[in-house]
């Protein structure tokens, strides 16, 4: 089964490019245009990874991240933050809130795809480890 990626961004053209890249890489894709929609999609679509823009209308990317991490079922969900504000303060803030990676816009499509792949693999590994643990218990 292919991995599911949720794209959260309010810039239509950026969404189109992300959608194309993810679909081409073989992932199943859903899109949310703002924070509220993102939270709904996380519940409905159950993504394996989120590409999360920071500057969103309404709830911003940090708010979304915070709620994801508080949510019981999703606190290990890999989240890659995307931002056009490349200031260090924000990177720190995002990492502190529990983002798995931080990518600055404009991004290199290859780096992005690598990062997505790495994060998905890492999370699958943790899951396998966890199952393993349950077994030995």
């Amino acid at each position: 089964m292919s991995a599911k990626v949720l794209i959260v961004d309010d810039e239509a053209n950026i969404v189109i490019s992300l959608e194309f890249l993810m679909q081409q890489a073989g992932y199943e894709v859903a899109v949310a245009r703002n924070g509220e929609e993102a939270l709904e999609q996380i519940a409905d679509f159950r993504p394996d990874l989120i590409l999360l823009d920071v500057m969103l209308p309404g709830l911003n990317g940090f708010d979304v991240l915070q709620r994801v991490r508080q949510h019981a079922g999703a606190h290990e969900l890999p989240v890659i933050m995307l931002t056009a504000k490349g200031r260090e303060v924000e990177v720190t803030k995002g990492m502190a809130l529990g983002a798995n990676a931080y990518i600055t816009k404009p991004f290199s499509t290859r780096n992005l795809l690598d990062e997505v792949r790495r994060q998905l693999e890492a999370s699958r590994q943790t899951e396998i480890d966890k199952k393993h643990e349950t077994f030995t218990d």
Binding site: E11, N13, I14, S17, L18, F20, L21, Q24, M55, A84, K85, G86, R87, T104, K105, P106, F107, S108, T109, R110
Partner: peptide, 24 residues
Amino acid sequence: STVTHELRTPLTSIRAFSEILYDN
């Protein structure tokens, strides 16, 4: 900061699609 953000947004699309076109 806002200016850079506003400049980066179109640049993101331009770069992403240029790379997509270049790679495909």
